[in-house]
């Protein structure tokens, strides 16, 4: 990886919204080790504020969070406000429930990843969406 690319990655901002602080910490450590700038929130309400003020390049979102707002609600609110940043849903309910959250189905998030995922898969997916946006 040459310096130019490294510089680009350092600019990339990722917002993590998950009510489990340990998941947030582990993810943050992983992403920071790859030089992403990471913001995180434990509830969707603050997450939305952060999405507006920090303008992340990508959001990693949990589904089942403490009521009343869950991840689906957050996602809808995001799109309703015309914030079209790619969203990766990182949740333990998707595949386990047998729901086929394909692209553009159900809620239309960019990607669903079953929690817990291999770090390689997470990073690969994140890169895919961050690079894709540049092109």
């Amino acid at each position: 990886m040459n310096k130019q690319n490294l510089g680009k990655i350092m600019d990339k901002k990722i917002l993590i919204i998950d009510d489990d602080p340990d998941i947030v910490e582990a993810l943050t450590l992983l992403l920071e080790s790859k030089n992403y700038r990471v913001y995180s929130e434990n509830d969707p309400g603050k997450g939305f504020e952060s999405a507006v003020s920090n303008k992340p390049d990508l959001i990693i979102l949990d589904i089942m969070m403490d009521d009343p707002d869950d991840g689906f609600f957050f996602f809808k609110k995001l799109r309703k406000n015309d914030i079209n940043v790619p969203v990766i849903i990182y949740s333990s309910v998707s595949n386990a429930l047998g729901f086929d959250f394909g692209k553009n189905e159900m809620i239309g998030a960019e990607e669903f990843i079953d929690k817990p995922a291999e770090p390689e898969l997470l990073l690969k997916t994140i890169e895919k969406y961050l690079n894709g946006k540049d092109k």
């Binding site: 489990d20 340990d22 998941i23 582990a26 450590l29 817990p116 291999e118 770090p119």
Partner: peptide, 12 residues
């Protein structure tokens, strides 16, 4: 959930 967190740390 807790097991997911454990695995996430283990991965690190």
């Amino acid at each position: 959930s807790p097991v997911s967190a454990i695995v996430s740390y283990l991965n690190l």
